[in-house]
Amino acid sequence: MDDAEHSFRKALEVAREQEARMWELRAACDLAQMLRDHGRWAEARDLLAPIHGWFSEGFDVKELQRAKTLLDGLSYLASSAYERHRPCSSVPDSAGPTSTISREGAAWARHRVCRCGRSGPFRPG
């Protein structure tokens, strides 16, 4: 675990101890984004999804919108459409059906640069 990941996990721990849900969501978004950028999509989705799921209102709040966009992109990365691209990095296990994806999440996922240097858009085969 590198220093950045350690710091994000520490922020999550502190937010949980203080029962500060919005701060926990913010730290989870930051950590999930870093994990996504390192190709650890399933781990990022599994971290963020339950925290985002706690919220039942306030979806117009910036942090909740950010979390939704990030989750949508992670869902796309784990979907069969992205899997058909077969990037050089390993493709995560699918965790069930893909959710409805926002335009921003889809745009990020479709234009991701593969570790081999090849860039998107990645389209179903």
Rank of each mutant, 00 (worst) to 15 (best):
E63S: 03
A81T: 07
Q65H: 05
L64S: 03
E63R: 09
L71D: 06
F59W: 09
V61T: 12
L47K: 01
L64G: 04
Y82L: 04
L77N: 05
S79E: 03
H85I: 14
G96W: 08
L64T: 04
P92Q: 08
L74Q: 05
Y76P: 03
R66Q: 09
H52N: 01
L48I: 00
P97Y: 10
W54E: 09
A81Q: 12
A95C: 10
V61A: 15
T98V: 10
T69P: 03
L77Q: 09
K62R: 12
L48F: 00
E83L: 15
D93G: 14
S90W: 09
Y76G: 01
L70Q: 06
R66A: 09
G96V: 01
F59S: 11
P87M: 08
G73A: 07
T69H: 09
A67F: 02
S94D: 12
A49F: 04
H52A: 03
S56C: 04
V91R: 11
S89C: 14
F59G: 12
P87A: 07
I51Y: 01
A81C: 10
L71P: 02
D60E: 14
A78W: 06
D46P: 01
F59C: 08
W54R: 13
S80M: 11
S90A: 15
A95D: 13
T98L: 06
P92C: 10
V91P: 03
P92V: 11
S75W: 12
P87V: 08
S80P: 11
Y76R: 10
S56V: 11
S75K: 08
A78H: 09
S80N: 13
K68D: 05
A95M: 13
R86L: 12
D60N: 14
R45N: 02
R45Y: 01
L74P: 08
K62T: 07
F59Q: 07
Y76I: 06
L48K: 00
P87C: 15
E83S: 15
P97A: 12
E63P: 00
L77S: 04
H85T: 13
W54G: 04
D72W: 07
S90F: 11
G73P: 06
R84W: 09
P87E: 06
L74T: 04
V61M: 12
F55S: 02
S90K: 12
G53R: 00
Y82D: 02
H85F: 12
P87Y: 04
A67C: 05
E57W: 08
D72C: 13
G58H: 06
S90E: 14
F55M: 03
D93R: 15
R84L: 13
E57Q: 14
R66M: 06
F55A: 02
P87K: 07
E83Q: 15
K68N: 10
G58V: 05
L70R: 05
L48D: 00
L47Q: 02
H85S: 15
G73M: 03
L47R: 01
E57L: 06
G73T: 02
R45L: 02
S89N: 13
G53T: 00
L77V: 03
D93S: 14
L71M: 09
S56D: 07
Q65R: 15
R45K: 05
P97H: 10
P97M: 08
R66H: 09
L71S: 03
L70C: 03
L74F: 09
E57I: 06
L47D: 00
G96C: 07
D72L: 04
T69D: 11
Y76S: 02
D72M: 03
I51D: 00
A49I: 02
P50R: 01
